[in-house]
Design a protein around this nucleic acid. Structure first.
Lengths: 148, 148
DNA sequence: TGACGTTGGTCAGATCTTCTGACTTGATAG
DNA sequence: CTATCAAGTCAGAAGATCTGACCAACGTCA
């Protein structure tokens, strides 16, 4: 539901291609490193886990899915040993989802591949245009990401 | 599976927010116009139907889904009256998926909302930065979209 | 012209993702 | 202390997507 054909594609659709390409590259590298098969949905949740752990509700909100969906995906990640749930010391109702050791390995791979891909993009666009792109997207995020 | 936290987010993730925002706005407007509920997946297929119709296989390829998935989504769109399948005069095996009248109404709404959203973005970024953003994304597409 | 590999598309079955609604338990404000 | 709100879970259903197996029409090359 977006995108005329030919040259003048709408900006929303134009944003889609790089995102898809990046996600595919990261997922492929993680799989190639022997970490079985992490699904895109699992990845999108996992990518939002903060250094000290994050509440399920917060993960759901940031990823724009329901608590149930987030809970289900965390179940899968937990079963596979990538994350763990620990009690939140500040609220007995809540639990924090934290990266486990195995999860940290995957994060390291993801960061490396992200850097590689960005380098390729920068090489294609040139330093200056790449920097401008980052600036513009960051500013655009101010009005397109409800969970900054 | 992408994205550090804080400021320095990776470009792939930064691309995600505008895309998501655009898709959500278009879908909301279509729903508000009384066109029941078109799902994101249906929209992504429908958006790739050309003016004279497009083969299922081509739709699947461009949307990066299997023929089966594309066929399933076209079934739904056809049942809802948004598209129709007609025989391809040049190949008896193939059929062309074309927009029906009802579908064209939706396309018109989508185009209008896309333009509105782009105008908002341009207002936020400034004319020049918006133009540069479009240029950079278009060039990036050269290396991130396998089906240009 | 007819056998063979290719291409457009469907059928069947499975898995993954996501949602709505109802519920439990703990936190918090009057 | 009670009414309400927030964090999560349970249950069930609908969507979206995949793999594998098939069929029919196309194109080609001997």
């Amino acid at each position: 539901m977006s995108g005329s054909h030919g040259d003048g594609q709408n900006l929303g659709l134009l944003c889609f291609y790089p995102h898809r390409a990046m996600e595919a590259r990261v997922l492929a590298a993680v799989a190639a490193a022997g970490h079985g098969h992490i699904t895109p949905a699992q990845g999108r949740i996992a990518a939002r886990i903060g250094p000290r752990g994050t509440r399920l509700t917060d993960l759901a909100e940031q990823a724009l899915v329901t608590k149930q969906t987030a809970g289900h995906l965390v179940d899968q990640l937990e079963r596979a040993g990538y994350v763990r749930r620990v009690p939140d010391p500040t609220d007995a109702r809540a639990r924090l989802v934290q990266m486990a050791e195995r999860g940290l390995e995957v994060v390291a791979i993801a960061r490396r591949v992200e850097a590689e891909v960005e380098a390729e993009w920068t090489a294609h666009l040139g330093e200056e245009a790449a920097a401008q792109l980052r600036t513009a997207l960051t500013r655009l995020r101010e009005i397109t990401d409800p969970y900054r």
